[in-house]
């Protein structure tokens, strides 16, 4: 899941200072699950904005709506009539939703209401942790199902480095050393000898380093193109 966190209210108020009518747009996907931009958060933020501006004596008309997913153009089509009436959209979707929204409504200001943090897992109520960096070429087969790219502070492939102590990372005593986890899990599976193999340098071209990525599956494409 994509984990996001709502931006501070002052920053958002700053974005909207020039507008009189705004649509606060929530998303029913990941940001709903991580409690950053679902229907409830959209409602709370709408009230905050309206009240804050009312207090300033510069009322802000706030419309609110939460759609199934902001990363799909189809769902955005469904709110075109609402968008027509506002000066700007404040999107509470992840960075993907915000951009899809901006692309769907090229003549409107689209402001980000959240900081998109990482791809992760929900550990506890109110606690999330990173698990994947979408590097494009999964190595979990070699590392016991624990990702060194996302979970090692140095993303090294032949760890643990010299800063691993008591299973924790030198960078932060609250962070598990990914390589200690890999080692211990492979040991439990009787596979620790596999770590003698030197993992070769990674081909980062499958990752962001190859430029913005795009996936085309011709088997799924319709003859008409779109």
């Amino acid at each position: 899941m994509i984990i996001a966190e709502r931006k501070p209210i002052d920053e958002i108020l700053g974005f909207l200072s020039q507008h009189q009518k705004v649509l606060v747009l929530g998303c029913g996907g990941c940001v709903t699950v991580c409690l950053a931009g679902g229907e409830k958060e959209t409602g709370i933020l709408s009230s905050e904005l309206a009240m804050a501006r009312s207090k300033e004596g510069r009322p802000l008309e706030v419309a609110q709506k939460t759609i199934e997913r902001q990363c799909d153009f189809e769902y955005l089509e469904g709110i075109r009539h609402m968008v027509k009436d506002v000066d700007a959209i404040l999107s509470l979707a992840c960075g993907i939703g915000i951009q899809t929204c901006a692309e769907a409504f090229p003549d409107k200001f689209v402001w980000p209401g959240v900081n998109t943090k990482f791809l992760g897992v929900n550990l506890n109520v109110g606690e999330w942790a990173e698990r994947c960096q979408a590097c494009g070429q999964c190595v979990l087969d070699k590392t016991g199902g624990i990702c060194p790219v996302a979970r090692c502070s140095k993303s090294i492939f032949n760890g643990p480095c010299g800063g691993s102590q008591n299973g924790k990372c030198e960078v932060d005593p609250d962070t598990d050393c990914a390589w200690a986890l890999i080692h211990d899990r492979l040991a439990r599976l009787g596979q620790v000898e596999s770590l003698r193999e030197i993992l070769p340098v990674k081909d980062w071209s499958y990752s962001r380093d190859g430029g913005p990525r795009k996936l085309v599956r011709e088997d799924l494409e319709l003859e008409s193109g779109k």
Binding site: K154, S155, F157, N158, I198, V201, W204
Partner: peptide, 20 residues
């Protein structure tokens, strides 16, 4: 790790690790 240095806001590289 750069977290402990004087440019903690920098991006690290780690294209390769020490063994590589």
């Amino acid at each position: 790790h750069q977290k402990f240095g004087n440019h903690p806001t920098s991006k690290n590289v780690y294209d390769v690790d020490s063994i590589q």
